[in-house]
Design a protein around this nucleic acid. Structure first.
Length: 833
RNA sequence: GCCGGUGUGGCGGAAUUGGCAGACGCGCCGGAUUCAAAAUCCGGUGAUGGCGACAUCGUGUGGGUUCGAGCCCCACCACCGGUACCA
């Protein structure tokens, strides 16, 4: 034998065998308990990085473990293969996006296979292929028919670099999520999905997802941003027009001293047209329009605005108050207009100070000097200066005033959400064509479902400039109206790729269906996903869109499950230390620009895939950041070689002997101890890897077993049946983590069957019952001594034995034992004074 | 501001139900093996004091509950993530 095992030969050998044996092909076996484990499918960039390896190693352990536990496991993989990089490659290198994407998929599939991941490759999907996007288009049409897709002319987020619009969720700190270019506003007619119709359900259902991390749920709650309040109707003096505002503080209505409209508010033009205020107001509106999202939402800047020359009438007291415009009011939240209460709202306070407006306190907030306010008093208190509401608790006043407004037809209770409808049009080529047709006579009409897919044309020019590249096709645009048969034009924008990834988990259940998107019966067998695994960066975007889709498809009667992912595990990033330009050692996410990247390929070449998997699972619990350490990888490799030598030496030692072993009999302490250890390991790995997904501690316990076996081999008299059982248990429990080496050793032991197909071992409860238990002895809660007692000794016997101990006698001598706490099989604590 | 999370040796991290703090691994120190080295095997490794058995201290800080607190409660500090002129 050799010191080190030949991972290159072993790994490729078993990957080939698994493929030939269709080891991980899944069938819809209704008689067995199903388990659907899914990792977020990758964008086919062409190169696997450590984040992928971590994500897929976690999923693979879960899949292999559940399979051994007897579940019918669905573990598929595919490609989120539409998107900008393919198009950029086309612009830069003149390669067609399809060619580029396809070659990347092939490269990446090989890399995934080289990791020994147990995927059912028969169910592979690629969102850029017509057999997938055909059904994407079909689903879009169902949304449209249900009134959940609409086209609207709106100011939208525009990335000047990507030359496309972005969804709200894709704007991070005022910049494009992809390229970090500051986002500008543009007026465009675009397709939207009505996710706001589902805001309430998206929020409420979060409470029914105990298997999701609190962090993700709280991020989604923040994003949906529910707030309860009231709509209040003011009238504009002299015009007879109503001005509706949203407020969460109707209790402060008596403190309203002015109103503010968003600069984009439709009333602004009509109310100022032909007046002396028109010029100044127009100038202000213009200036706002040219500001970026970033400038406009900056909190630090001074309040600005313009008086528009009109007054509103307060519905509760008839007071006339001036109307302003200011960019601190947003057109797309609430009604685009606010009632301003400077005494109790900080932004209004700042504006009032800047414009010399009245500040009238109406809530007496404890410990605040209302006559000399230096900032707004936003806390709770007792109503003052508020007519008949004076003296009430302000919380009660909120309810009462809302009721009274409602009775007077001047307002109503309202719930507002920050969530906006999902803008899905993209001015790009490499995406699913939106299957809509514009007819002069009939307006927007969905393509006839019989004609799907609407194929992406190939005669397209990629310049990276101007409109959607689809406009350059000679054939694509012209079509006939599905309704009247007249001449019509196709939509030339494509869909946001986040639509593609919002239902791929359903397509896996029935990946090759040519009649429908998926067979509901199959989906109902497999869904929901029992365990979903991916990066936390998708906490809002992908995970909320997918939930939205699942709900709509449920409402359409296409699937029973209302939530797609029962349990969610968000794995942490892979980070690595490096020395920065100032000579400091810092840790950061692996990135090319920092030069702290370790490629999976180099690790696989040096140590093999089993080592890469083992290290990445051992170094940290899955949801935490993983600090990459070259020495740590070395250690994992060392451990696998230790396993290899242990098993190989054993095989050599029994060469030629009878291989059939009877159930071991443990006669001495060393045997009992090893037997205890091997059963405890089964239990521990089962709980840690299969239950709470703490793979690091599962692996640690396997390492302990190996250490114990080395000691046994060296010191104890060899009990062959027992040692054989330990060897086989070791290989079995280690198999989900490092499938190649363990499968090879299993085979070398002379077994004809396969480890991947074996059942998870059942641990022997009786072996876990120890004859003697170590009891902890404390004096005043501090550890003093330990001693052995027969298992399940009585309270009395335990206390008696503890009192006999030398150290206890010493410590209690001349002192008063006030109290003795005895927990049998665990602890004795003497309270001494 | 609001919401969520984290804080334990030189390092990554254990401690699952309030009961031995530091499992396992890395690093380091020592020993065996070797002509020598690598590899491997064995042992040690929280801090302070002591030759030593041992003693004292120790889980971000301060308090509390308890026979007993890394874990529970109160107050605070630091860091990380989300969200935000959202009315």
């Amino acid at each position: 034998m050799r010191d080190k095992y030949d991972f290159t030969a072993i790994e490729s050998k078993w990957q080939k065998i698994w493929e030939e044996e269709n080891a991980f092909t899944t069938t819809d076996d209704q008689s067995r308990e199903k388990y659907y484990v899914l990792e977020m499918f990758p964008y086919p960039s062409g190169k696997l990085h450590m984040g992928h390896v971590r994500n897929y190693s976690i999923g693979d352990v879960v899949a292999r473990f559940k399979k051994m536990k007897g579940c019918n496991v669905l573990h598929p993989m595919g490609w989120d293969s539409f998107g900008l990089p393919a198009e950029n490659a086309a612009i830069k290198h003149g390669i067609h996006p399809f060619t580029w994407t396809n070659s990347n998929i092939n490269d990446m599939r090989d890399q995934l296979k080289s990791l020994g991941l147990s995927y059912d490759w028969d169910r592979e999907v690629a969102t850029c292929k017509p057999d997938y996007y055909r059904w994407m288009q079909w689903i879009f049409i169902q949304f449209y028919k249900k009134g959940l897709a609409y086209k609207k002319d709106n100011p939208v987020n525009w990335c000047p670099d990507c030359q496309t619009v972005l969804a709200n969720e894709q704007v991070v700190d005022g910049c494009c999520e992809r390229c970090h270019t500051p986002v500008t506003k543009k007026h465009l007619s675009q397709w939207y999905l009505k996710i706001t119709d589902y805001a309430d359900r998206l929020l409420a259902n979060l409470d029914d997802l105990p298997g999701w991390p609190d962090k993700v749920k709280s991020m989604q709650r923040n994003w949906i941003g529910r707030s309860e309040g009231a709509e209040v109707t003011f009238t504009i003096d002299g015009s007879g027009k109503d001005l509706v505002v949203f407020t969460t503080r109707p209790d402060t209505l008596f403190g309203v001293t002015y109103m503010v409209l968003a600069p984009e508010h439709p009333y602004v033009k009509e109310l100022t047209a032909g007046t002396e205020y028109e010029a100044a107001v127009n100038a202000y509106v213009d200036a706002c329009a040219h500001k970026s999202e970033l400038e406009r939402t900056s909190l630090t800047k001074e309040k600005t605005g313009e008086f528009i020359g009109k007054y509103a009438v307060n519905p509760v007291n008839g007071e006339k108050i001036p109307i302003y415009i200011s960019d601190y009011v947003m057109m797309d939240y609430g009604t685009g207009a606010i009632m301003a209460v400077p005494a109790h709202d900080q932004r209004d306070f700042e504006f009032a100070k800047a414009f010399g407006l009245d500040i009238i306190p109406v809530v007496d907030v404890p410990d605040v000097d209302l006559d000399n306010l230096t900032e707004a008093a936003a806390a709770e208190g007792i109503m003052i200066n508020s007519g008949k509401y004076t003296g009430m608790n302000n919380k009660d006043a909120i309810r009462k005033i809302t009721e009274d407004l409602e009775a007077a037809g001047k307002g109503k209770k309202t719930i507002n959400y920050k969530l906006r409808d999902w803008l899905i049009s993209r001015q790009r080529y490499w995406g699913t064509p939106i299957p809509m047709v514009y007819c002069e006579k009939c307006g927007w009409v969905p393509e006839d479902e019989k004609n799907l897919p609407v194929l992406l044309p190939t005669d397209v020019e990629f310049t990276g400039k101007g409109d959607s590249p689809l406009t350059t096709s000679a054939t694509f645009r012209k079509c006939t109206c599905p309704k009247c048969g007249g001449e019509a034009e196709r939509e030339i924008d494509t869909m946001d790729t986040f639509l593609d990834s919002s239902w791929y988990f359903l397509r896996y259940c029935d990946a090759h269906n040519e009649e429908q998107a998926f067979d509901p019966a199959k989906v109902n067998y497999w869904m929901n996903v029992d365990q979903y695994i991916g990066g936390v960066e998708h906490a809002i975007l992908h995970l909320m869109y997918a939930r939205f889709f699942q709900m709509v498809l449920h409402d359409l009667g296409l699937c029973e499950a209302e939530e797609p992912f029962k349990n969610l595990l968000t794995q942490g990033m892979v980070i690595k230390g490096y020395t920065d330009s100032e000579g400091n050692y810092v840790k950061a996410k692996m990135s090319k620009s920092l030069g702290n990247v370790v490629s999976p390929a180099e690790i696989q070449a040096k140590y093999g895939s089993d080592t890469a998997r083992l290290f990445i699972l051992f170094a940290a619990p899955p949801e935490k950041e993983l600090d990459w350490s070259d020495e740590g990888v070395e250690g994992s490799y060392r451990f696998l070689n230790r396993v290899y030598r242990l098993v190989f030496e054993y095989i050599e030692s029994i060469r030629g002997d009878e291989r059939e072993f009877a159930e071991p009999v443990c006669s001495n302490e060393a045997d009992k101890s090893l037997n205890y250890m091997l059963n405890a390991t089964i239990k521990k790995v089962e709980e840690d890897a299969g239950g709470r997904f703490n793979f690091n501690t599962a692996i640690a316990s396997i390492m302990e077993l190996v250490n114990e076996m080395y000691k046994y081999k060296q010191h104890a008299e060899m009990n062959l049946p027992l040692f054989n059982k330990a060897i086989e248990t070791l290989l079995t429990v280690l198999n989900p983590f490092t499938p190649h080496l363990t499968e090879e050793m299993w085979n070398q032991l002379g077994h004809e069957d396969r480890l991947y197909a074996k059942s998870w071992p059942v641990y022997d409860e009786s072996a876990l019952v120890k004859d003697e238990i170590e009891i902890i002895v404390q004096i005043n809660g501090k550890l003093k001594d330990k001693f052995l007692m027969p298992n399940n000794s009585s309270k009395e016997d335990t206390e008696k034995a503890a009192r006999e101990l030398e150290k206890v006698k010493e410590a209690t001598e001349g002192k008063n034992i006030v109290k003795v706490i005895v927990i049998p099989n665990r602890i004795v604590n003497f309270v001494v004074r």
